[in-house]
Design a protein around this nucleic acid. Structure first.
Lengths: 225, 225
DNA sequence: GTCTGTTTGAAACATACGTTTGAAGACCAA
DNA sequence: TTGGTCTTCAAACGTATGTTTCAAACAGAC
């Protein structure tokens, strides 16, 4: 029982419970009983519940951001000075996520779900932690997106990036349920990789969409294409 | 002080607090002290906290689904048998949301934020409540989407609808924060209506995107456009 | 004004939470 | 074996939660 198998058991249990129930809906008692460790172990090893949340994110975000950096390095090298296209940039991100070594088959969807929660649940401390620790790969991704969509105004790009994030986080975070529903309804089996291969063209098309609608909201709502 | 002004004060306070903090992060004591009513009033008038949550949703969702039904009626009438286009369908939904009579200027964003939370926070009772009460307009919207995208396979349509839901729910659920960030970074002020007017073309373009990528994930991730 | 049903009020209830405590156990070098 | 450090454990702490209680205040009908 090497250097604290307890720590990993807590992280595993916390990760899974946070992903399926959210942060404040998950108590330390749920975590410790799922992990089969004593209640006090969390505060002993991590200091507080908030620090545990940070540790859960750090465990997968740190290797992921390293993977992402090298993926971007390779991409930029292949492009020899020209800015990578939108498709290339999105694929670099997607591949890095999908290829991350997973602890189990649910790994990728837990990963995505946690990212979605980090954005959605108003945990001030978490947002600050993520900004401080991982602003660099995030900023780099944003710069790549900017260079890949020079035709967009800053404001348009800002919102469309939010739309992309939403579609991705939302879909991936409920991917298990959605895959099940699809199999029951249409009898089709799907993998996370396939979802990604459908998502990327959707996102790319959205990013490259024609300008925002100028239809007045008091009009009749007729399409303008 | 007509028939229970207390009930409305509670609903107003609860709506606002739920929208900005989420459900489990908002206590009854916060609600009653913001509403300036006695703590016991919530349980007296609504029965429980969960029932209050349902009441908050019902207050805006019931008139909204009525508005939506007539909007769809009008749309189908205008189309004289032909299926409405995707843009028309999305706009009918958006307009119905934006045109709803609002209690105040924050009304629409609270509305959206609550819808996002309903999807995002894993409140089992809420999801069941919404499914039981509002499955009809939802189902109709899905049927319209299907008729507006006959070129898509069932599987493609299924996933792309999830992507749309995600982009919408996610963006709307953090719309306040996103608007603030944009104002601080670029000095641009935005309304929820403007977000909607940017979101619809994004979604429409995504739905109409060319086929899914066939690039193998073990390849080099080169774009295929 | 008195009675009746409804609404409010202050206080308490039971429960769950995150955290702390201090003793017991495990482990390893000397 | 001894001594010291790190880890586990059961129990308790203080606080916050949703809910309940029951008396007081109120309203409208007679």
């Amino acid at each position: 029982m090497a250097q604290s198998d307890t720590v990993d058991r807590i992280l595993d249990a916390a990760e899974e419970l946070f992903a399926e129930r959210g942060f404040s809906e998950t108590s330390l008692r749920m975590i410790t009983s799922k992990a089969k460790v004593n209640l006090a172990a969390v505060n002993y090893h991590f200091g507080s519940k908030n620090a545990l949340i940070h540790a859960v994110f750090a465990r997968f975000l740190t290797p992921f951001s390293a993977t992402l950096e090298t993926a971007f390095d390779e991409l930029e090298e292949r492009c020899e000075g020209k800015p990578p296209t939108l498709n290339q940039t999105l694929w670099a991100l997607t591949e890095s996520a999908v290829r991350m070594p997973q602890r189990n088959e649910k790994g990728i969807s837990i990963f995505m779900r946690l990212l979605g929660l980090a954005y959605t649940q108003s945990q001030g401390h978490l947002r600050k932690f993520l900004e401080e620790e991982y602003s660099e790969p995030f900023g780099r991704f944003m710069r790549l997106l900017k260079d890949a969509t020079p035709e967009l105004s800053s404001v348009d790009r800002y919102w469309r990036i939010q739309f992309m994030l939403g579609a991705t986080a939302f879909t991936m975070s409920s991917s298990d349920a959605l895959i099940d529903i699809l199999e029951n309804k249409l009898g089709v089996e799907t993998t996370v990789q396939e979802i990604a291969s459908r998502l990327v063209p959707f996102l790319a098309a959205g990013m490259k969409a024609p300008d925002k609608m100028l239809v007045s909201l008091s009009g009749s709502g007729v399409s303008v294409a």
